[in-house]
Design a protein around this nucleic acid. Structure first.
Lengths: 138, 138
DNA sequence: TCCTACGTTGGACTTTGTCTAAGTCAAATG
DNA sequence: CATTTGACTTAGACAAAGTCCAACGTAGGA
């Protein structure tokens, strides 16, 4: 992620303080943040940044394929900067905690043509659900 | 789904006109409806039924395992009455159309213990994404 | 340095869903 | 069959997450 800013500049991004700050926030080890969490952290570095800009920037990063949007439930979407290493997710059904996981197998290959209904299938998302150690203990 | 009402009665459900209507709506071949779509259809059979009751009833059916809740994005949840035949979903990234699919393989078996982080994993959801024939043509 | 198109802002608005207090009714009971 | 009671339903207020918009600001090219 460290050369993210270079890649973005290369793609014709106008570099603004706001975009830099959002990219910096995502660059930390805090993976799977909601837009609001990203905004909260961004504000500590650039107090006047608006929610709308955070949403815009995250949306652009998703479009560019630099960040993955993870929708595990009706709570807020989460943003995963680990876009360049394919992976799936394990989600706690109670508290919403998320972990990246790397199952074996290739689910894309497991979907026969007869089951594609003419769709152009481009992606699979596998979401494992269960209880995290903390929530299982309750 | 035809004996759904019997099963519900057997589980101690108080049978009301509203619940009967919601069950009837789900019983049609219209799979993957949103709560609002269910409500719209229910209203044609029982004009005074309220949104809250539809939400309540759908929630109860999900808890009872009679209906599966499908969250593919931040749009409305969808309700899948096909709960007794395990399957996964293929979603159009543009228009949101959903199809049930039956991939080969067993994703649960594909998640090594080392990748479970102490979670009690109970379920997997596989979501294939792509463009449906209509949207691919645009 | 100046221009201008691209980016940002705040606030209103939308969509989905949840909550609540008051009223209604299914069905157990006598 | 009448009574009773707590489970169900209702309308509408509320909440969370995200989108939209018109006015303003500024990065970066000329």
């Amino acid at each position: 992620m460290s050369d993210l800013l270079e890649r973005l500049r290369g793609r014709g991004w106008r570099m603004t303080a706001q975009r830099r700050v959002v990219a910096e926030v995502l660059d930390g080890e805090h993976v799977h943040m909601t837009a609001d969490e990203v905004h909260a952290r961004a504000v500590t570095k650039l107090p006047e940044i608006s929610r709308a800009t955070v949403y815009n920037t995250l949306g652009e990063l998703v479009t560019l394929g630099e960040v993955i949007e993870v929708t595990t439930d009706r709570r807020a979407k989460r943003y995963d900067p680990n876009a360049h290493r394919p992976h799936h997710h394990l989600v706690c059904a109670r508290c919403g905690a998320i972990r990246d996981v790397h199952p074996t197998g290739n689910p894309l290959a497991d979907l026969p043509d007869a089951e594609r209904f003419g769709f152009t299938v481009s992606d699979v998302e596998v979401t494992y659900r269960g209880l995290c150690p903390d929530c299982a203990g309750i």
